[in-house]
């Protein structure tokens, strides 16, 4: 295993005096790894995301990304949430271009290289199946399409770390599986590091290299599980016995967490 890209050393975070939201997190993620965090609701998964991207500082312990301690918001990450959060006054294309207007060094080149950037955005939109929708406004798109655009926006500036906070949670089952494959293909092609927070065990098992199971609040990592299925994985495998067994095991572990 290569050197850790993201590492957490004894990290705890308390938002207020009511106790830790997450506690004693020790883990390391290597570059290009796809990790998923699952756990009961309120277990601090989103808190973990905020720590990882530097939106929040830990109360104790240190978070390191790419060999350096995280002190403020990272600039090498992209983020997508359960809500697509697209700006309704911008077209899909302009929404996807937004990060390039903000991230250094692109923000200073934006006017000069606009044509080139638009090319990137169109290409990315095409790979997620949104060709022809570039000039539509977000509210003209379906929920699944908005989420595709949101993922494009998270990736346009070629981040090394992609943070996904239940990105498929609000979608119907068919669209969700479709988007798993979209994400899988994007990841296979570019191999950025992904941190995926989800409630969906099948999603975690299908997409991730490593699944972390978290306990109830205060959130701790209680299990680290490598998913040893060969890649590239076909969606059909999720309906086969070995995969179903795996999900069953994960489910049993979550069940234990919830009952304690």
């Amino acid at each position: 295993m290569s050197a850790a890209f993201v590492s957490f050393d004894d990290v705890s975070l308390a938002y207020d005096a009511s106790g830790n939201a997450i506690e004693d997190i020790n883990l390391s993620i290597h570059e290009g790894e796809f990790v998923a965090f699952v756990g009961p609701s309120g277990c601090g998964k989103s808190t973990f995301m905020k720590l990882c991207t530097g939106l929040h500082a830990p109360t104790t312990g240190t978070v390191q990304v790419d060999g350096e301690a995280v002190t403020g918001p990272l600039k090498i990450s992209g983020m997508a949430f359960q809500n697509a959060n697209l700006l309704p006054w911008r077209t899909t294309l302009d929404n996807v271009l937004l990060p390039l207007e903000i991230v250094k060094p692109y923000r200073h080149q934006f006017r000069k290289r606009r044509e080139e950037f638009v090319g990137w955005a169109r290409k990315l939109l095409k790979t997620v199946g949104l060709e022809g929708y570039e000039d539509q406004y977000p509210w003209q798109l379906s929920g699944g399409m908005q989420q595709r655009a949101s993922i494009c926006r998270a990736l346009i500036h070629q981040p090394r770390l992609l943070m996904l906070d239940e990105p498929f949670g609000a979608l119907d089952a068919f669209t969700r599986e479709e988007l798993w494959c979209v994400l899988r293909d994007l990841w296979e092609a570019q191999r950025f590091t992904v941190v995926l927070v989800t409630h969906d065990l099948r999603e975690a098992a299908f997409l991730a290299d490593t699944v972390y199971i978290m306990s109830r609040r205060p959130g701790r990592v209680i299990e680290r599980r490598s998913i040893e299925m060969p890649r590239p994985r076909a969606l059909e495998t999720t309906y086969e016995k070995p995969f179903i067994d795996l999900v069953q095991e994960l489910r049993a572990q979550i069940g234990e967490v919830r009952s304690t």
Partner: peptide, 14 residues
């Protein structure tokens, strides 16, 4: 302003 929207931009170093 929605906090999520702000987070999306802040992780970009906005």
């Amino acid at each position: 302003l929605e906090p999520e929207m702000e987070d999306v931009l802040r992780v970009l170093g906005a």
